[in-house]
């Protein structure tokens, strides 16, 4: 995966690039909006990471212009402005995800990877399959090795999100945002409880666990 990082703080940019490279991707760094825009227009990337506020041309403005010209590469906004209004602004400008500073490198990498995968054209399928696990989005039936698993509506959405991003780490905050649409840090282990409840349903009667906890970061669903 090729990632463009546009961040004016040189240290931070370096740290981000390293985190992304450590996860096995290629990272390209630049420090101002105009250069970032030029690279985003001329080179091919899987994900663009833009700081919201950049010297020269503002990150929001760059992304808005890219979107106007039909460049649909997924964009992750980074911002020190963490309020909901700022988030909504970022998404309106054409961002696909919004991460407020400070963040952990694991959070950054997890979001970048999820965004990078989003370009895969399989989001329209009606049946999601992952190894023994199968979920039908129409009949809302979940089976593992043919055995029916009863899940609550919210658990269904949680599982769907995990399956769509299978093999990738998803953080608690990502789950909170994407599954519950809550955009704050609840400082609770509520998410853990939900996940472990789901895990008990899909992994309990099987030898081979699929839903893994990544310590300090989040979860990963694997075949």
């Amino acid at each position: 995966m090729r990632v463009l990082i546009v961040e004016d703080a040189v240290d931070t940019a370096k740290f981000m690039a390293r985190a992304i490279e450590d996860a096995g991707h290629a990272a390209d760094v630049c420090h101002n909006g105009a250069e970032g825009e030029l690279k985003a227009r001329t080179l091919s990337y899987d994900v663009l990471v833009f700081d919201r506020m950049l010297p020269g041309k503002d990150g929001m403005q760059v992304v808005e212009d890219l979107r106007k010209d039909g460049i649909t590469t997924p964009v992750l906004f980074l911002s020190a402005l963490g309020d909901v209004e700022h988030r909504i602004e970022g998404l309106k400008a054409g961002g696909d995800d919004y991460l407020s500073k400070p963040y952990s490198s694991a959070e950054l990498v997890a979001r970048v990877e999820v965004l990078g995968k989003r370009t895969d054209p399989d989001s329209r399928q009606t049946v999601l399959k992952l190894g023994e696990l199968e979920m039908d989005l129409i009949t809302r039936k979940v089976t593992r090795s043919g055995n029916k698993i009863d899940v609550q509506p919210r658990e269904f959405r949680l599982l769907e999100y995990l399956m769509r991003n299978s093999g990738q780490i998803v953080t608690r905050t990502m789950l909170l945002e994407k599954v519950w649409d809550y955009h704050f840090d609840p400082q609770t282990n509520v998410i853990d409880v939900h996940v472990s409840r789901l895990r008990s349903k899909i992994d309990k009667d099987f030898d081979h666990p699929m839903l893994h906890t990544i310590r300090g970061t989040g979860y990963r669903l694997e075949a």
Binding site: V84, Y182, H183, F184, P186, T188, V190
Partner: peptide
């Protein structure tokens, strides 16, 4: 919405804790 949810979850969280 975002603020109010935060307030209520905060209180519920305390209650559970």
């Amino acid at each position: 919405e975002s603020m109010f949810v935060q307030a209520v979850t905060n209180l519920l969280d305390n209650a559970v804790k």
